[in-house]
Design a protein around this nucleic acid. Sequence first.
DNA 1: ATCAGTTTATGATATATATCAACTTGCAAA
DNA 2: TTTGCAAGTTGATATATATCATAAACTGAT
Lengths: 228, 228
Amino acid sequence: MNQECSCENCELKELFFHNISSNEMMSLCNSRIERNYEKGDYINEQNKPIEDFTYLKSGLVKLFVTNNTGKEQILYFAKPFDFVSLLSVFSHSTYSYSVMCIEESTTCNIPIKEVKRLINENGKFAMGILEKMSTVSDNVIKESLEIRRRNLRGRVAYVLLHFADNIYKNPSFELPINRKEIAEYIGMTTENVIRALTEFRKDGIIKIFGKVIEIVQYDTLKQISEHG
Amino acid sequence: MNQECSCENCELKELFFHNISSNEMMSLCNSRIERNYEKGDYINEQNKPIEDFTYLKSGLVKLFVTNNTGKEQILYFAKPFDFVSLLSVFSHSTYSYSVMCIEESTTCNIPIKEVKRLINENGKFAMGILEKMSTVSDNVIKESLEIRRRNLRGRVAYVLLHFADNIYKNPSFELPINRKEIAEYIGMTTENVIRALTEFRKDGIIKIFGKVIEIVQYDTLKQISEHG
DNA sequence: ATCAGTTTATGATATATATCAACTTGCAAA
DNA sequence: TTTGCAAGTTGATATATATCATAAACTGAT
């Protein structure tokens, strides 16, 4: 009965499930489901019941809320190794935020009950989850403060650098979102986001080919991000 | 050897330490320290090492960051039963945020090592901490989104209602912070916060006696908070 | 290839907010 | 009491951002 769990080779295993026994691993493995999503698909939807503990294996997603005026506010972009359905999972029975793919993505889903059971039984596992959750929420909060203290130009610069440095690790990249979504993320209007981008382009700081952005003068953009 | 732990009668015990044995309780009790703070005292300081797990027994505190331009941004007001040194405790070795008393306060401090040890040993305890942490970070994030989508008047109205409804549970209350701090919380200038308050006063929506605020037309203020 | 709808872009103008300056009030220390 | 400093207030003005209108560019479906 020396069964192999397909999770054994999962690169995320180390990250999430260190400190669990092979029995526990087996149990999780049996109840997990992998799901594929296209750009634009909802992974989680605000106010819907939380059923799974979801993590991102590949792709890119946005977390956002739809407020009662119908407008969307983006609070975070998550890439693999970030938790996805982590915020509010342990305090609410429904999702506080929607999660939508902005690139083709794959998730691994485990019934939240299973995860909770394991936490209750295994403190070391719980500690790993605590650390991850602390990291994610800290990042979300810190990012919102960083954005809040900047003006339009600084915010747009910040977003571009965020994608270049943290998401794609490359000064040129294809934006996975449109101008409106940038606006929803930084709390400005679409028109003004476009104007800032155009300004940067005219100043030779960036090049724009539709959704493809190339950061030409990295240091100048950094400067703008830091000091407006 | 039927020792009594003074924590036995602590009203916070139920909240934080359900599901731990009396032995574990005893151990925590022996390592805990209670501290008193005056208004203006730092409980935790940004970038200083995290040594204790701190919770607020009484009083009121503000969480804030000092950014590299020297300006302060307030991210949350915490009252008893909220965790205080919860954010970033499990992901960083130093505080990401400062915590300062805005009213005379008492904290109970437990060495963070002790808490971590207990989490590792006791999954049920860990689950309680996870739930609390999820609640707090969810609140911080949700609040920042709520503030972000409002204009000046809406933000000021929101803050007043926040103190009346959530903190003091009374339509008239003494503001524990000055106008500048309101501004740091809602991301506007002090002058404009004052102007909004004056406007509300002139419209008969609130009364102002220095730091004492009395909400006269609650529904109107609510309206302003919702729709600018 | 054409059409319709969305996204991107630009300009003119209105509105909201910040900045600067001056002044008042409150408060605590000498 | 006086003094000095921080907090609160108000007005004038500058600046930043939103709104509205229009149009070009792009995209997907027929």
